[in-house]
């Protein structure tokens, strides 16, 4: 009995001694100099910077941009028609910023100002096929293509263009259409009038597209002609 009691006491003593020593070791010394704290602070700051950089890198990697005509807007959700594919977009009240592009400038708008049929460019992080928008830009949609002039109607100021993928476009040349031709010697771009266009010339054009437009009749924003003489010189 005596032995048991003695051993119990001995074991208890050893345990108390060990735990006590650990606790004392973990308690910061009041007399310790401030330099280790500064080093720790610096390390923490470096770690924070590293994490911030990594987060920014991952965000950049996962950052995608999509564009298309808006099919529907419902609260914080929007559906885009991205050339046949439907993309889901989510607005985040604290994160998403929306702008309307006005030429070379932009004006901040509310996401509630975005309407069906607008052309939207969305940048954000994609997860589970849903893009959480960081930025939404409402802009105009331009089509850029090229082909050969196959027909010129001088009465209606209209031309027909056959592209290499066998699409035929009907382009109206308006007074506001910027018309240029390449100088075959200098390759400089020169301003021209409608009368300079010839069947057989190569044409590069820019047109505006709207959500309602389904055919290939457009009003040209800009045309650039490579005259056929360039190819026979």
């Amino acid at each position: 009995m005596k032995n048991i009691l003695r051993n119990t006491f001995l074991v208890s003593y050893v345990i108390v001694l060990l735990i006590g020593q650990n606790v004392v070791a973990q308690t910061p010394s009041a007399t310790a100099s401030s330099s280790p704290t500064v080093v720790v602070d610096k390390d923490i700051q470096q770690l924070k910077d590293k994490i911030a950089n990594k987060v920014s890198e991952i965000r950049k990697e996962n950052n995608k941009a999509i564009s298309g005509f808006i099919l529907s807007v419902d609260g914080n959700n929007m559906k885009l028609d991205n050339t046949g594919d439907v993309n889901q977009v989510k607005f985040d009240d604290t994160l998403t910023k929306a702008f309307k592009v006005l030429g070379t400038t932009k004006k901040e708008i509310k996401t509630s100002d975005i309407t069906k049929g607008d052309y939207a460019i969305v940048s954000g992080v994609v997860a589970d096929n849903v893009i959480t928008a960081n930025v939404v830009l409402i802009d105009e949609n331009f089509l850029v293509d090229s082909g050969k002039i196959t027909e010129i109607n001088k009465d209606t100021y209209n031309i027909k263009v056959l592209t290499t993928d066998k699409n035929t476009y009907s382009l109206d040349i308006e007074t506001g259409t910027k018309q240029y031709m390449i100088n075959i010697k200098t390759l400089a771009r020169e301003v021209i009038g409608f009368s300079k266009l010839k069947e057989g010339d190569m044409i590069h054009f820019v047109v505006k597209k709207t959500s309602e437009q389904k055919n290939k009749d457009h009003s040209a924003v800009k045309i650039l002609i490579i005259p056929q003489e360039y190819f026979i010189k």
């Binding site: 941009a65 089509l143 090229s146 490579i226």
Partner: peptide, 19 residues
């Protein structure tokens, strides 16, 4: 600013080749 639709076309020197 925003989306930029860009078309690149190469017209070869040898006229028998397609762009």
């Amino acid at each position: 600013l925003g989306e930029n639709s860009i078309k690149i076309v190469i017209y070869p020197k040898e006229k028998q080749f397609r762009p």
